[in-house]
């Protein structure tokens, strides 16, 4: 059973979202990192790029797999976790600490369609 944090929102494509005012902090769930195995590379957008809900903004790579990252919200990339460039393993070590991007949201109501921890637990097993 993978770890799911109560206070976060989730997408059905296994990204988590932490809301901080108008900023959405985005990472991938424990379930996702376990499925991928040892992550070897995180492909991230640049600050200032626009992202839209449901569209891919980057990708995770492991030795045997590659998986797109889908943005759970729309908006502009406000920050990118550059530490992951050299240490992609941080996602394996603690997926909820290793955020990937922060998004300045353009439509906060999009959060409503995300999953609660309980709802996400249904699909992540």
């Amino acid at each position: 059973m993978s770890k799911i944090l109560e206070e976060l929102l989730y997408s059905d494509s296994h990204e988590w979202v932490k809301v901080d005012g108008n900023i959405a902090i985005v990472g991938v769930s424990d379930f996702a990192q376990a499925e991928m195995g040892d992550i070897t590379y995180v492909d991230v957008p640049s600050e200032g790029d626009s992202v839209s809900k449901g569209e891919d903004f980057g990708a995770l790579e492991s030795v045997k797999a590659s998986s797109e990252l889908y943005s759970p919200v729309s908006g502009t990339v406000a920050a990118v976790n550059t530490e992951l460039e050299d240490k992609p393993e941080l996602i394996n070590e603690d997926p909820y600490a290793a955020w990937i991007i922060k998004v300045e949201m353009s439509d906060k109501s999009e959060l409503d369609s995300l999953l609660s921890a309980a709802a996400y637990a249904e699909i992540a097993d």
């Binding site: 070897t40 590379y41 790579e61 492991s62 030795v63 045997k64 797999a65 590659s66 797109e68």
Partner: peptide
């Protein structure tokens, strides 16, 4: 190395 970029893993991507 860097095989995750490749056709057999990325398939339609």
């Amino acid at each position: 190395t860097l095989q995750a970029r490749e056709q057999h893993i990325r398939r339609e991507k």
